[in-house]
Design a protein around this nucleic acid. Structure first.
Lengths: 122, 122
DNA sequence: GAAAGTAGTTTCCTATTGGAAACTATCTAA
DNA sequence: TTAGATAGTTTCCAATAGGAAACTACTTTC
């Protein structure tokens, strides 16, 4: 009959929970992982390239999410000196540090699919 | 001047993207990681225990998120034969497979904090 | 000069998310 | 018999997320 938090009240857990909230706030939404994943695979892509690569996204969301990611220094935007003007998006060194997390996310999802598929087969 | 997707059109990438979407759909929202993290730390907690451990959550969200997680077999709910009736929530074996992902998420968030803090100090 | 490619922005709309507060229902201890 | 603990559900509301379509603006090619 405990009346107060015991587990999450420890400093270690508080830091951990805060860290998870931080990560999630940067990566939340329907498209961030797709954009980052695409830029990790094929660096230096233009706006229209990304629009074609990321199935289902529209110009508004792509534009907004790219701005978010750039603000958080996960991707960089470079206006090229061409005519007509083109823009190159690429992943930053800091953005690349997300690779293990993205890989973990993909790995778990693949196994989840297998688990669900396996159950139905039985 | 490519007119069609090239990177994400490869089967490997399609599977990867689908897997990430799967993971995200199970783990999206403000509270899922907090609930899972709490149940991994301290197994066998009642509804009110969780309400106290997870700072800021309300009964409605806790109830709804617990149902979601149970449906996906990540946590289990056991009604105990006590009076008054109590309920025990715990992480499932399958839920535990999320540990590496949660750890990665926490690790990245901690480093992100450090990076931002370090920059401000200069 | 019309079409198509570059890179977005703006507007309007709907759907989902999440929170506060009140409520149900059962049981126990003072 | 009233307060407080168990475990939720329901209602009402505000904020956010996300999508479709139209529009801007500039340049090149046919």
């Amino acid at each position: 009959m405990k009346k107060h938090a015991e587990i999450n009240a420890t400093p270690v857990c508080q830091v951990r929970m805060q860290a998870i909230s931080d990560s999630m706030s940067l990566l939340a939404g329907k498209w961030k992982f797709h954009i980052l994943g695409t830029l990790i695979e094929g660096s230096r892509l233009g706006f229209m390239d990304l629009l074609r690569e990321i199935d289902g996204i529209g110009t508004k969301m792509l534009s907004k999410e790219l701005q978010d990611l750039e603000m958080n220094n996960l991707i960089s935007r470079t206006v090229m000196n061409t005519k007509p003007i083109t823009v190159e998006y690429s992943i930053t060194a800091y953005g690349k540090t997300l690779s293990p997390l993205i890989d973990e996310m993909a790995k778990w999802g693949v196994n989840y699919r297998k688990a669900v598929y396996g159950k139905n087969k039985k």
